[in-house]
Write a protein that binds this DNA or RNA. Sequence first.
DNA 1: GTGATGGGCGCC
DNA 2: AAAAGGCGCCCATCAC
Length: 601
Amino acid sequence: MGAVLCHVSTRQNGRVYVLVRQASGGEFLVDTLDDAGTPIEAARSLTPVAFSSFVSSVEPGTTAPRWVWDNTAHIYPALLAGGIRVQRCHDLRLCHVILKNSALTSTSDLALAAPGRWDLASSPASDQAEARATLFDFDVTSVADGADESSLRELRRQLDAVAGAAEPGRLRLLLAAESAGALIAAEMRYAGLPWRTDVHDLLLTRELGARVAPGARPGRLERLAQRIRSELDDAALNPDSPQELFRALQRAGLAVTSTRGWELKKLQHPVIEPLLQYKKLSRLLSANGWTWMESWVVDGRFHPDYVPGGVVTGRWATRGGGALQLPKQIRGAVVADDGWKLVVADAAQLEPRILAALAQDTSMARAGRGTDLYAGIVSSGVVETRDHAKVAMLGAMYGATTGESGRLMPRLARAYPLAIALTESAARAGERGEVVTTRLGRSSPIPGPGWHESQAQAYDPAATATDERRARSQARDWGRFTRNFIVQGSAAEWALCWMAEIRRELTALTRADAAPGPAGESGRRAAGFGSPGARAPFDSSPHLVFFLHDEVIVHTPAVHADAVARIITSAAETAGRLLFGDFPVDFMLTVAIVDNYAQAK
DNA sequence: GTGATGGGCGCC
DNA sequence: AAAAGGCGCCCATCAC
């Protein structure tokens, strides 16, 4: 099992890492280091222009270094704006979070050190307002490094922590993948998702009625509001107010406990149909209506702000724009440019396949080989229908114990004892307050002080039944979290490797015909949101434009679409091998070459 | 007026 | 009896 999973970098010309820091004056301090973090050349201080030239002079070739910097989101956008991409980086901030928490490095100096600036202001989620202002300017924050806080010191601590870990290969892969994710996030934001506002407007108008001033209700929505008012006999009712609505429903004799859609669905009353319609449409208007379009789509591109590592499990989050919640209703507005295509790929039943591989459950892996995994479970005779297979699997991964899912679980456990035992042991660990760890080494947080207090309280001789019930319930909650953590977190790792591999192969695909001129070219194409359409270095070659947990979109000149589809497919196989070596699990994809996103699936 | 909170619902 | 993992965003509401 302990196969070498990855090599970070080969030594070429002795240059392995180039550490980049920004000084308060705006200049860049550049240190060339070997793979132990030891400087091998005198450090240099470069102006922003000189720094750009330096990067573009070493970058396109096979000897490009791994750039080490505090925060990819601070430095990389400015390089992109100058038409410069880099192949590899090491994001100290993201890597710190992983290593600080990982059970694989728990005895390292890094893990044992007192919290410093790398812990305080550096967690991805707290990365508040580095937002849009910094996108096309170098972010010149003053970096007041104390001796223990310097980037060089931090890099060495990170390298030491990895070298001393039980599974250094896995951690190296994780850090490389996480950092590649940071590059991809910056690139996707910079390139943007092709977005046709005219199509979006058409879709909105068809659903809601003609566009009206912000704050007003479009015609169709207003008519639904009127119907709701008359059915509930309340001429002043504001259907946007859950409280008013709740009272009005009660008055109409409907025994509801909330105004949630799924609860309303079960009721028989003439108000229900227009009310559900209203909820659906008002959601569309407020979340992805004209206001959203005006603020997030610029020059035919949607530029979401991805936050790599923004979720404890390692999934990405977004900040503003809600890119990870694009409703199906408006995906038709995502349209490839003329002469271009979208290649939309989705990993089918990713999490159960990840679970099968994590648990080395060959039976479950076999059920998914070359086919829909849920269909495979059915044809193995475990359950009768695909729906049952799906519900049972989700229950196993999310921790359902009752209902249909709970009833089906025993059959799943009999057919796939290894997989189910793994989810159960992760749950038990969480219930005991222990940490669980993903395939590559990301560990779950420990529960907060309140959790431990409740548990301790339940063991107190004076504990009441309520204390015990609360403690048990919180323990089970945390167990469900850790149960899911190993699967969701390992799936996120697979997805990062998948994307990193796609990115690498895409650049190789067109490197010959789109070789950017070295220096000179940089700066000339510097583009802000104000410039039209596609941007260098992405204006002529296939590139990732969207990522959604287990799904990617590549925007590509039509001529390359088939090659892109093959790259995406083989990248999935590579990702599987990187995480799970020779274990025979398939990671199946659905791949579609389309003109707009709504045509996929 | 601003900030925090919770309901509700979109995505995986 | 109901119950499920992870998010972000908008709105109404309420405390300040």
